[in-house]
């Protein structure tokens, strides 16, 4: 419907053109992706064996607790971590089993 006048470019050429147009966005999101991957790796390695609370994770990896919670919420949504018990008023999270 929208691509009525598609330029006759190959997929590779099109992506190249888009990449040029969105160079700054791509640069920014590449940095974002690097950060997100590093944080995921750090959090997941810390909670691989023993479930931990958000403040414990925050202390270990040096990120503010509200940001850690945002990552944990995202990992829960996409099946990367699961909730596993409570410690006082804090739910504990651990890395999900890989299938």
């Amino acid at each position: 419907m929208m691509a009525a006048e598609k330029p006759e470019l190959s997929r590779g050429e099109l992506l190249k053109k888009l990449r040029a147009e969105h160079a700054q966005t791509v640069e920014r999101t590449q940095e974002l992706l690097k950060d997100q991957k590093r944080i995921q790796r750090d959090i997941c390695s810390f909670i691989r064996e023993t479930p931990k609370s958000v403040p414990e994770i925050a202390k270990e990896i040096g990120l503010p607790a509200n940001q850690v919670l945002w990552y944990i919420a995202s990992f829960r949504k996409y099946g990367i971590v699961v909730e596993d018990g409570m410690c006082e008023d804090y739910p504990l999270y651990r890395k999900a089993e890989e299938n």
Binding site: S53, V54, P55, A58, A65, N66, V68, L69, I72, A73, R76, K77, E83, M86, D89, Y90, P91
Partner: peptide, 16 residues
């Protein structure tokens, strides 16, 4: 919801 339960966004504590 984002946490699957009521938690406070500052640190993931169940607010009492």
């Amino acid at each position: 919801g984002p946490y699957g339960r009521v938690l406070r966004p500052g640190d993931g504590m169940e607010p009492m």
